[in-house]
Nucleic acid binder design. Structure first.
Ligand SMILES: [Mn+2]
Ligand SMILES: [Mn+2]
Ligand SMILES: [Zn+2]
Ligand SMILES: [Zn+2]
Lengths: 141, 141
DNA sequence: AATTTCTTTGAGACTCATTATCAATAAGGG
DNA sequence: CCCTTATTGATAATGAGTCTCAAAGAAATT
């Protein structure tokens, strides 16, 4: 979607950063999948497509995207952080199989509300939250 | 509490492991505080008391304790994992200040119930879960 | 166009938390 | 006390991510 490219351009201007083909390629790569992938998977996928980019640039670009709410960083409790783009994706949490690593997404509005209430109660200005359920999936039981 | 020492001995027997003074000291050190501490803090605290123990043994002992439900491992999203003992402590989740690192504990039974429901819905046998709220505490705002 | 200025990139060094290796030491049953 | 086996600690290795810095690329200025 040309729209998403525009979004990147806007954000780079806002941050006083330049629009480069590396940044464009990283963003397109992240947009190209709805999996939960880590930086290295994104890096290798780009290299396989002969895109000239370095690991450092992948990390750096992801940072910009995360800061600007275009990508979510997922701490799945083991191994590297995973990333997912947020274009046209509503907020959700994850339930993760401890055997096969499968990740399913879920939304419970009630939980979200209760979290906000907790933050209020404790006088915290709530930023992000981290909710992962770890279990064994049907296939692995 | 002599009771907690007994608990350690039982667990070591169950696991076919030997009762050593290092394991005893690590366990006592963890029991001695209700803070959320990382392995290195526990290690240094022991060394300051002239207990002869290595970092490796601290990590190894904590692993046994975590596996046997005596200690909880806390992934606080930044830096090393934190640990807290579970003796006489009910389950709770954490709200963490992104500025000063302060950690507060909270319990919302409704959230716990909803988590179980999600797991059922997705056919997962639920193990542990990870719920952290990240925000800015009153003092830091 | 040439020069200057400033940003970005990539290779690799580095950090930090944790795990692995393995020879020396300690536990515990007989 | 002896013997077998487990444990320990020093240190090396690992994995994920960050930092450094010289070279390459834009953009702005002459
Ligand atoms: Mn997701
Ligand atoms: Mn706690
Ligand atoms: Zn599974
Ligand atoms: Zn604070």
């Amino acid at each position: 979607m040309a729209n998403n490219l525009e979004k990147l351009k806007q954000v780079l201007v806002k941050e006083g950063l330049r629009f480069t083909c590396q940044r464009e390629e990283v963003w397109k790569e992240i947009l190209s999948s709805n999996e939960h992938r880590d930086a290295d998977e994104i890096y290798h996928s780009l290299r396989k497509k002969a895109v000239s980019v370095s690991r450092a640039t992948v990390y750096r670009t992801i940072d910009v995207l995360v800061k600007n709410n275009m990508v979510r960083k997922l701490d799945v409790g083991i191994g590297p952080n995973k990333f997912e783009h947020k274009m046209g994706i509503k907020h959700h949490d994850h339930i993760i199989c401890m055997k096969c690593g499968k990740i399913e997404e879920f939304v419970v509005n009630q939980i979200e509300k209760l979290q906000k209430k907790v933050a209020e109660e404790y006088g915290f200005k709530l930023g992000r939250h981290n909710l992962q359920l770890f279990g064994i999936c049907k296939d692995c039981q």
